[in-house]
Design a protein around this nucleic acid. Sequence first.
DNA 1: CAGTGGATGCTCT
DNA 2: GAGCATCCACTGT
Length: 196
Amino acid sequence: MEPAGEAGTLPRAFFAREVDEVARTLIGAELLVDGVGGTIVECEAYAPSDPASHAFRGQTPRNAAMFGPPGHAYVYRSYGIHWCLNLVCEPEGVASAVLLRALEPTRGLEAMRRRRGLDEARLLCAGPGRLCQALAVTGAHDGAALDAPPFELRAPARPPALVSGPRVGISRAQERPWRYGLAGSRFLSRPFSLPG
DNA sequence: CAGTGGATGCTCT
DNA sequence: GAGCATCCACTGT
């Protein structure tokens, strides 16, 4: 019985909205996996009918979680080496998701340093692959609910200042400014081009 | 600081 | 067989 500790957890309904709005609202939220994590400072929206989305060409075994209910994880392997964590949005079947790209580490720093083999806090979660390594997120979490252990997600106390820009590492639909960041954060995977 | 290439596995053509 | 929603080590200024 720990009602107080769960009071701020984001409900599944939080994710059942248009993905771009969810992405903006996630900046400043706290994400923990087994008690390890920090503040979300960078993420990207991947919408339905988005040529850069894994779901664009329809459902496959890999992207099946994107077609499932919102409020669940979609985890895929990137470049054969890294894992990337997405949060599924919108009504079930629409297949949109937010890719988490960077955290400001706040909890479990020692566990993250051990997993990453690094000391410098700035580099522990600065990038989607690094973030998953630091939080020990793998394909085993694909499809898992975000409002239950090992996940904890809490909204920010106050809306933070946002910056936006083109998404990173994609070749299609580069003109869509669906990358969001916490203004002034030193924990981004890379800087945003202009002050926003 | 910029640019290049290797590691490595899965999906889709 | 190509192409990745990446990261790191290495090169050269």
